[in-house]
Simulated scan of single mutants.
Amino acid sequence: MKLATLKNGGRDGTLVVVSKDLQSAVLANNIAATMQYAMDHWDEVATPLADLYEALNSGKVDNAFAFHPADCHSPLPRAYQWADGSAYVNHVELVRKARGADMPPEFWHDPLMYQGGSDSFVPPTASIDVFNTEWGVDLEGEVAVITGDVPMGSTTEQAASHIRLLMLVNDVTLRNLIPAELAKGFGFFQSKPATAFSPVAITPDELGTHWQDSRVTLPLSVHVRNELFGQPDCGTDMVFNFADLIAHVAKTRELEAGSIVGSGTISNVDRSSGSACIVEKRMLETIETGKPVTPYLQAGDTIRIEMFDEDGHSLFGAIEQVVRVIPRP
Rank of each mutant, 00 (worst) to 15 (best):
Y88G: 00
Y114V: 04
L112N: 09
G117K: 10
P111F: 07
Y80S: 13
D119Q: 09
K60Q: 15
N63T: 13
A55S: 14
T125A: 07
P75K: 01
V92E: 08
Q115I: 12
W82N: 06
F121Q: 02
E106I: 11
H68I: 06
C72K: 05
F131K: 04
N63M: 08
T125L: 10
T125H: 13
F131A: 07
D102V: 08
A64Y: 03
S86R: 11
F107D: 08
P111K: 08
F107A: 13
D102H: 10
K60W: 03
H73G: 07
T125D: 11
C72Q: 08
Y88L: 04
H68T: 12
G59M: 08
S120Y: 06
S118L: 05
G100Q: 10
P123R: 03
G136A: 04
D102Y: 10
D119N: 10
D102F: 11
M103L: 15
P124C: 07
S74W: 04
R78A: 14
A79I: 07
L52E: 00
M113F: 11
N57V: 05
F65N: 08
H109W: 09
D119S: 12
P124A: 06
A70R: 14
F65C: 12
I128D: 00
W82L: 15
F67W: 11
V137W: 00
D71I: 02
W82R: 03
A87E: 07
V137F: 02
T133G: 00
A83V: 15
P111I: 07
F121E: 02
D84V: 06
E54V: 05
